[in-house]
């Protein structure tokens, strides 16, 4: 950024990008290794750890739990939050700023504080170490992100379409089902996906309230890493990274393809 061609800035950027990328690639190498999960480079390469992951119920059950918890908490967060996003877009009412702040609170409070809060609260009402407890906690933590995404998409929604639909003879429910929902579907999917990932990746709260019975994948990984013996954690990390990388590359390729005709 300091000389004519910007070589310095680009060199720096590439170095930092390597700093970001290399650790993730190393884990991928580790997952094919044998022996201790913390020795690098590994002595030899096998697929044993992958087989072990899929065979070990102490890993597959938390994985399944994470999917179930992620799905339910995402649906719950969508169902609770979407009406509020409609209210914020359609109406002006008293206390709007305050309520907005309230809805955004879960994003502001550090998760470790909520971990303590839920640990104590669920312990009292008997939801500690249950799936229901984790689902409820994660749904609450997902409310702000769902709210932000849904509000943004509703702001761009053309409300005369609702009037047009009513003028065509459709009641409120039919209008919502046939006009609003299909047009807003991408936003529902994105919001749901963000909520799912929030839950799927959330470690701190799950660590303290999920217990053995409802253990999530991040909790299992955390324990495994702390005991520093289990090579399966490298497999899981690689799989998670692989999914993200695949999705990112597909999206990038699509964007490039979509951008190309516009350039011509």
């Amino acid at each position: 950024m300091f000389n004519g061609s910007g070589t310095l800035s680009r060199t720096l950027a590439v170095l930092v990008a390597l700093f970001i990328l290399i650790p993730m690639l190393l884990v991928a190498v580790m997952s094919f290794g044998q022996g201790s999960s913390l020795r690098f480079p590994p002595q030899s390469f096998t697929l044993d750890s992958y087989a072990a992951y899929f065979k070990s119920s102490s890993w597959t059950i938390p994985t399944l739990n994470s999917f179930v918890i992620g799905a339910f908490s995402a649906i719950l967060a969508l169902a609770i939050t979407t009406p509020a996003a409609f209210a914020f877009t359609l109406y002006d009412f008293r206390g709007k700023r305050l309520i907005r702040l309230l809805v955004m609170m879960p994003l502001m409070v550090p998760f470790i504080v909520m971990a303590l809060a839920y640990f104590f609260f669920f312990g009292r009402i008997g939801l500690l170490n249950t799936m229901a407890g984790v689902i409820i906690a994660h749904a609450c933590l997902s409310i702000p992100i769902v709210f932000l995404i849904q509000s943004a998409s509703l702001k761009g929604f053309d409300w005369t379409l609702v009037r047009a639909s009513q003028a065509c003879g459709a009641g409120a429910f039919t209008t919502f089902r046939r006009i609003c929902l299909p047009i807003l579907r991408p936003s529902f999917l994105v919001a749901g996906l963000f909520a799912f990932i929030t839950s799927f990746d959330e470690t701190v709260v799950a660590l303290f309230i999920s217990g053995r019975a409802a253990s999530t994948l991040p909790r299992r990984m955390f324990e495994s890493v702390r005991q520093e013996s289990d090579p399966i954690v490298a497999v899981v990390s690689t799989l998670l990274f692989g999914v993200v990388a695949a999705v990112a590359l597909i999206v990038a390729a699509r964007q490039r393809r979509a951008a190309r005709p516009a350039n011509r």
Binding site: T160, A164, A167, G169, G171, I183
Partner: peptide, 18 residues
């Protein structure tokens, strides 16, 4: 309500369902 009036309506911004 509007949908029971059976009136046709045309809007300035067309309001076609995308």
């Amino acid at each position: 309500p509007p949908h029971r009036r059976n009136f046709g309506m045309v809007f300035q911004n067309y309001a076609l369902f995308p």
